[in-house]
């Protein structure tokens, strides 16, 4: 579903992503794990067509994302780390705007608001200025879910959510997994990764240092009598 080959991204001499290759299969939930500045968000931005790679190839749903970014973006939805909407618009107006941009029927808004396990209700007619950070994040998720795209890219999706919101999000992501959506997400919360991911890519200083199934990672924790955090830190230290 997603194929990344030798992806490199440099900013003013700094290498944010260094010759990274991996593929994500259809229906797979794939976690990008790594410390701050390891290149996780940059990879997602390259996939979403927001960043131009310095080198490499990206194929999304069979489309060359670098040659045909518009068509490639049609197959995916992206939730950035910082969601920002105009304060003076209501949540419903924000959803309506993105619905129109994607040429979706207006009924999609109600489907997203009322049809999912994730609680989007209760704030659809509030202005964005009245929403807490967590509620804005929920609105971002609602926008990302509008097109029912086969691929979801989520950058630190639980970062602004309270514990109840984070639990709701995990249920929501599980429901999406059952619908065979392909999900790529970044997270610092190893519990999220353990609970949701099928495979994990560990990035350090822009380099891919490990690509494991979650089962293989769990096996390592058992073999070494370590927690998931300790296994992850071993990867980070070794590189």
């Amino acid at each position: 579903m997603i194929d990344i080959r030798n992806l490199t991204k440099r900013f003013n001499g700094f290498t944010a992503v260094d010759d990274v290759s991996f593929e994500v299969r259809k229906g797979e939930t794939f976690a990008l794990l790594g410390p701050n500045g390891s290149g996780k968000s940059t990879i997602l931005k390259c996939l979403a067509g927001l960043s131009q790679p310095t080198g490499g190839q990206i194929t999304v749903n069979g489309i060359d994302a670098l040659k045909n970014p518009r068509a490639s973006r049609g197959s995916l939805s992206f939730l950035p780390q910082r969601v920002g909407f105009h304060d003076c618009l209501t949540a419903h107006e924000v959803l309506d705007f993105f619905c129109r941009l994607r040429n979706l029927p207006a009924s999609r808004i109600d489907t997203v608001l009322h049809g999912s396990e994730f609680d989007f209700n209760g704030f659809s007619h509030k202005q964005v200025s009245e929403l807490s950070g967590g509620m804005r994040q929920k609105l971002g998720l609602a926008v990302a879910c509008l097109p029912d795209a086969p691929i979801l890219l989520l950058d630190e999706p639980t970062v602004s959510l309270d514990p109840a919101g984070a639990i709701g999000f995990r249920h929501f992501l599980k429901a999406l997994k059952e619908k065979e959506k392909t999900i790529v997400f970044t997270s610092h919360v190893l519990a999220d990764v353990d609970m949701l991911a099928d495979r994990v890519a560990v990035l350090v200083d822009g380099k891919l240092v490990a690509l494991e199934t979650i089962e293989a990672l769990r096996q390592k924790t058992r073999d070494r009598h370590q927690t998931l955090e300790e296994v992850y830190l071993d990867y980070a230290k070794a590189n």
């Binding site: 927001l50 973006r73 939730l79 920002g84 993105f98 994607r102 971002g140 926008v143």
Partner: peptide, 15 residues
């Protein structure tokens, strides 16, 4: 320069 607000917009299938 609507800071922080444009990533979602530019990630839509529009030019």
């Amino acid at each position: 320069l609507n800071e922080g607000g444009d990533e979602m917009l530019y990630s839509q299938p529009i030019s």
